[in-house]
């Protein structure tokens, strides 16, 4: 039986797909057979972030409608062993996903993988609810910014009332992943700090990903940022994954980095 993880946020543009790609890849790097499922029907992008956009033949909706088998639709990642991608459909039909259809696909995937990472669409409508409905664990991606924090709190409400776990009287494991964190602005009092966001949302902190040039560079190239192990964001994601797997890791990149003499002279970027 696989563990089903939903990467969700309520608000769009906070880094759900980037985080899904990084977490899925990271879990596979740690030797766990992992599948990344894109639930953003109509606006798929996980394929692009993972660099397999030209290899998409069949998608999640095709599998649900039995137009293709799961094995036909799964795309094997070329860089990371044990990692597969199940792309979303580009159909405009909002009702393409059904609870029964999704359940069947997840059950089948559950036989084949250790982890199923579901990349949720933005919002709290049907698509987002389906992405989180079957989850065991939720990773709530939040930016240190008012609208993102508010929407994260709303999605926590949905997780606690509309998920299958909640309906059965249980609860989904919740994790906070704070992304696009800028310690310089936090120090200047211009940005909510990790502690501020934790005070408000009151869920365990999985990791803090610093605002980083590496993220755009990675998505430009269709390569999950964890593969750039020199980068701050890549390392922060790897730390978060280690914590997810139960390891103790200290939080890094929370303080303003003091530049060394060499990098100050030569203007090297970290």
């Amino acid at each position: 039986m696989a563990e089903i993880i939903v990467v969700t946020s309520g608000k769009g543009g906070v880094g759900k797909t980037t985080s899904s790609a990084a977490i899925g890849t990271g879990l596979a790097l740690r030797g766990h057979k992992t599948v990344l499922v894109d639930f953003d029907v109509g606006l798929r992008n996980l394929d692009l972030i993972m660099g397999c956009e030209r290899r998409v033949v069949f998608d999640l909706v095709n599998v649900i409608n039995k137009e293709a088998t799961l094995n036909q639709a799964l795309i094997k990642d070329k860089r990371t062993e044990g990692l597969f991608i199940l792309p979303a459909s580009q159909t405009r039909d909002k009702d393409a996903l059904t609870v029964e259809g999704v359940e069947q696909v997840l059950n089948e995937l559950s036989e084949m993988f250790d982890y199923i990472v579901c990349d949720s669409p933005a919002g709290i409508e049907k698509g987002a609810q389906l992405a989180l409905y079957f989850a065991d664990t939720a990773i709530v991606v939040t930016n240190p910014e008012v609208s993102s924090v508010r929407d994260s709190d709303r999605i926590l409400g949905v997780l606690q009332s509309k998920s299958r776990k909640a309906e059965q009287g249980g609860s989904i494991r919740e994790h906070l992943l704070l992304t696009r964190y800028n310690p310089v602005r936090v120090q200047a009092g211009e940005m909510l700090s990790v502690e501020d966001v934790q005070d408000i949302l009151a869920i365990p902190l999985l990791g803090v990903i610093p605002e980083s040039e590496a993220v755009l560079k990675a998505s430009n190239q269709g390569q999950p940022v964890v593969l750039d192990q020199q980068s701050d964001a890549g390392q922060a994601y790897l730390d978060a994954i280690a914590r997810f797997l139960g390891e103790e890791r200290e939080h890094r990149f929370l303080e303003v980095q003091r530049k060394g003499l060499l990098s100050r002279v030569f203007g090297r970027k970290g």
Binding site: V146, R150, D153, G157, A188, E190, M191, S193, I200
Partner: peptide, 19 residues
């Protein structure tokens, strides 16, 4: 008062109400 602490205060009130 820093803008971040204004943000925090506003959020605390709003989130409590919405919960």
């Amino acid at each position: 008062q820093s803008s971040a602490s204004v943000a925090k205060e506003r959020l605390q009130v709003l989130v409590a109400y919405e919960r």
